[in-house]
Nucleic acid binder design. Structure first.
Length: 853
RNA sequence: GCCGCCGUAGCUCAGUGGUAGAGCGCAUCCUUGGUAAGGCUGAGGUCGGCAGUUCAAUCCUGCCCGGCGGCACCA
């Protein structure tokens, strides 16, 4: 018997699959289709373990569905525009394009080595002119539809990356890539009207029943739809004639109003500042103190009374003061509020500081109107409205409806829906991105290019290597003629956010050769993506943008689906222990030797023998040096062992901890499997298969099938481990014809069941037992449901909830039959000596409990 | 503060309303022509805590403790 040699077998089978074009996606109208997609990688240059896990999961699904008779699309591409290439250009003087394509070449080779069942003929990179030129085409379509527009606005400016960021790319006031504190700048920017779809994007989340709840909740929160009332206060005395618009979600508490507040940036605040130096000073102070969002959130509430007064909408004689308050945001609602401190914590904190009145108008259940008071905590729970004239006695929802109706009747406002979501700013002041296909003409202004002028490609001699936008600096590229007047014009030098690139790539995969951006015929067949797999970090970025673009393109008649991803799975990360020398320097796992001493572990640096501190388990990252290079693992253990390990050791949605012992365990399994197949002896003809092994085989098929369907790869693999132990206990040699016959069926099923996880090993095993053709082309094994149940069940017998013995009964035995067996059992009878049986509870095929006294 | 996930063997994790499992690690032994290896056997768990529902709870419910993640002056 020879040891399994992955270095020889694995490349052999990859070649066989390629020669057979085993993974070519073909539209077959008679067959059900299945589109499996993993979030495409950024070509950073090297494959890491996270990629191995992500793409192995997708590969399990793709191979499984193919074996189950689906026509499968499983493509791969590259999210290839973006800053790292430009940063490499600045740091190392390389050309971003060359750098990117060289990285793609290397990573493609590594991905191919993983043995993924991908249709490589469909591969593209977003930096291919053939891709981004099509993107420019639909960009122009959306521009024409008014879904893309240009506006001067205050934007998030990342001073390190020298570009604008979308709101979604600002985390805790810092750039998501650079970590730099984001500044506010006023710029002319391209934006997409994602807010037009805010309602749909919220409502349609309910249809995504194969998405994790967590992601749906995150998107819902991000879009932040709230329903309420927009209405107008009229000024008492001086003040703008048009009044002051406010937004509230609590119109039911209008009679608890204490003051009216505006944001420091609000026009009314500006007006006050113009004639009141103290107001101006207060506004200035607010601006200074609020550099980051984190600071705004924790800042103490402060305000300034403008001296202006407004009339209460339901009582012209009731006047409310107008304050400027630092906690009011200009870009939400109308930038102005009415404050009801008794039922809003922020308002309460504010009025407690400035001595304004607090009047409760919602009476909590069980409280007495005469004695109920609000202390330091606002009451936001349910109750009955009081102190509120015509709203008295109503519950909160009824009072909201009544207040809105009254305001509408007065003509002072209407019910309104407000979103937290802002339009998507897509301009980036960087060269290594998709050029925006418009020109600026002195005479005609902003002019879209005709489609015949596409693609707008990068110049070949672009000079990177300095900060700022290289397209802007290029001596000739931007100078062109205006398609409208023929006069001189300059090209737009902003490029599109790379999230635009990734917002439609899944649709392009349906037919990457098509002249139009999306081939309707092919997209109608393949879309939506049946199973999308990727990290949770894109919950409100990529996944929201892709949903929006899908809807926008559907409305433009370019797509038939309104949701891109029918199923979403967010997989966990690959983690590893961290190691540090005494001086605090991080050390790579491969330089560390771990020795077990009893139950504790001790780490030393291999080179010097010095002790190393074992630190926390963290996501594999270069900064902590706790990475393990996939290619080194492939070299030692083979690809299959690596795939098996990252899938086997944790549930797919949770993090998996990479350990040497773990991958060695997977490697041992690979060898044990091969050993079992290598020792295979053909069964004598016509022998009746051993019933126990047969049942175990059919149970296994059922369990593995259900595990893959449910994304429980780890438990499916656990069942395979257990089954192998059973086979080892019934070895091929020196055995009965019955066992040999059962083993033949078992091995045939086993080879096909391991194929999604360890595809190379499966081929080798399949060949060894004389399987027909390639295992990738073999149908998934079927199980006989009758064989997955035992014919005879061992039922534990409890007396008063404690286990006192067991009986053997036929499967499905009912109460009467079981009671008969109980009576005939001398052991049980002995246990019941002197007791009166009150009740016998029989749970079919599970257990018997006798209640006795 | 709000929402979600997690807590089972030394470690990493499966699992189940009814006798508690895997891999690694640990111990013993075997093999020494699968040998920078292979195999047998074994020890090890009040299933985070308390209460409830139930004939029966590690599993369901509630509360608490601990860890992780997301959201958070959004009117």
């Amino acid at each position: 018997m020879a040891r399994y040699n992955p270095k020889e077998t694995e490349p052999k089978w990859r070649k066989a699959w390629a020669d057979a074009e085993a993974f070519k996606a073909v539209r077959e109208p008679g067959k059900p289709k299945y589109y499996v997609l993993e979030m495409f990688p950024y070509p950073s240059g090297r494959l890491h373990m996270g990629h191995v896990r992500n793409y192995s999961m997708g590969d399990v699904i793709a191979r499984f569905k193919r074996a189950r008779g689906f026509s499968v699309l499983h493509p791969m591409g590259w999210d290839a525009f973006g800053l790292p290439a430009e940063n490499a250009a600045i740091e190392r003087g390389v050309d971003p394009k060359e750098w990117t394509y060289a990285n793609i070449d290397r990573m493609r080779a590594e991905l191919k080595e993983l043995g993924l069942s991908i249709d490589w003929s469909r591969e593209f990179a977003t930096c291919d002119v053939g891709y981004y030129g099509k993107q420019q085409a639909w960009f122009l379509d959306l521009l024409e539809r008014g879904l893309v527009y240009r506006k001067e606005s205050v934007v998030n400016w990342d001073p390190v990356d020298q570009t604008v960021l979308a709101n979604e790319q600002v985390v805790d006031g810092r750039g998501w890539r650079s970590g730099a504190v984001v500044e506010k700048r006023k710029l002319n920017q391209w934006a997409m009207r994602i807010t037009d779809y805010a309602d749909q994007l919220t409502d349609d989340l309910a249809t995504l029943d194969r998405w994790p709840d967590k992601v749906r909740v995150m998107q819902e929160n991000w879009i932040g739809r709230s329903k309420g009332l927009k209405f107008r206060f009229h000024f008492a005395g001086e003040g703008p004639a048009e009044g002051l618009d406010v937004y509230t979600t609590r119109p039911d508490t209008l009679f608890g109003a204490s003051f009216v507040g505006v944001a420091p940036d609000h026009p009314l605040a500006q007006m006050a500042a113009a004639r009141d130096p103290k107001a101006a000073a207060f506004i200035e102070e607010c601006r200074r103190g609020a550099a980051t969002e984190a600071e705004i959130e924790t800042a103490e509430k402060r305000g300034y009374d403008t001296g202006l007064r407004v009339k209460h909408p339901f009582d012209p004689d009731w006047e409310l003061p107008v304050w400027i308050a630092n906690f009011i945001l200009m870009d939400y609602g109308t930038g102005a509020i009415f404050a009801c401190p008794a039922h809003d914590q922020r308002d309460l904190d504010f009025v407690r500081k400035y001595g304004l009145p607090v009047k409760p108008v919602v009476l909590p259940p069980g409280e007495d109107a005469a004695t109920f008071q609000v202390g330091d905590e606002a009451y936001t729970g349910p109750g009955v409205i009081y102190n509120s004239r015509f709203l008295d006695g109503l519950d909160i929802e009824a009072a909201k409806a009544e207040a809105i109706a009254r305001i509408e009747a007065l003509g002072d406002g209407e019910g309104a829906t407000v979103f937290r979501l802002r339009d998507w700013g897509v301009s980036r002041q960087r060269a290594w991105g998709c050029p925006i296909p418009v020109v600026h003409c002195e005479k005609d202004g902003v002019v879209p290019l005709p489609k015949s002028a596409l693609p707008v490609a990068h110049p070949a001699d672009i000079e990177f290597g300095k900060s700022g936008n290289a397209l802007e600096r290029h001596p000739t590229w931007k100078h062109t003629t205006c398609p409208a007047c023929g006069g001189p014009a300059t090209r737009e030098t902003d490029t599109l956010d790379t999230f635009v690139d990734s917002s439609w790539y899944f649709a392009r995969f349906a037919n990457p050769w098509a002249d139009e951006p999306i081939s309707q015929e092919d997209a109608d067949y393949w879309l939506p993506v049946d199973q999308y797999i990727g990290g949770i970090e894109h919950a409100v970025l990529h996944l929201l943008y892709a949903r929006f673009v899908t809807k926008a393109l559907a409305d433009d008649g370019q797509l038939s689906v309104r949701e891109p991803f029918a199923g979403l799975f967010t997989q966990g990360m690959v983690t590893h222990e961290t190691y540090r020398r005494q001086n605090g320097e991080w050390v790579e796992p491969k330089d560390v030797e771990i020795a077990a001493e009893g139950k504790t572990r001790r780490a030393t640096l291999i080179e010097t023998g010095e002790p190393v501190v074992i630190g926390d388990i963290e996501k594999m990252a270069k900064s902590k040096r706790n990475t393990v290079a996939p290619e080194e693992i492939f070299e030692v253990y083979g690809v299959d062992a690596a795939r098996l390990f990252v899938l086997s050791d944790s549930p797919a949605e949770r993090d998996v901890q990479w350990t040497t012992g773990g991958v060695q365990g997977a490697w041992r399994f690979v060898n044990r499997v091969w050993d079992e197949f290598d020792g295979h002896v053909p069964a004598p003809a016509a022998a009746e298969p051993d019933a126990e092994i047969r049942r175990a085989t059919h149970k296994l098929i059922r369990q593995v099938t259900e595990s893959i369907d449910g994304f429980r790869f780890n438990s499916g693999i656990a069942r395979l481990y257990e089954f192998l132990n059973l086979l080892k206990a019934n070895p091929a040699k020196d055995t009965t014809p019955a066992i040999a016959a059962a083993r033949a069926e078992a091995l045939s099923a086993f080879a096909r069941l391991i194929a999604p996880f360890t595809p190379h090993l499966a081929e080798e095993c399949w060949g060894r037992i004389g399987g027909e053709g390639l295992v990738v082309a073999a149908p998934w094994p079927e199980f006989d449901p009758a064989l997955t149940e035992d014919a005879v069940k061992v039922l534990p017998v409890q007396v008063n909830g404690k286990r006192r013995g067991e009986i053997t009964a036929p499967a499905g035995a009912e109460q009467a039959a079981v009671e008969a067996i109980l009576k005939a059992d001398p052991d049980i009878s002995a246990k019941l000596e002197g007791l009166t049986i009150r009740k016998i509870i029989v749970v079919k095929d599970r257990i018997v409990n006798i209640v006795a006294a």
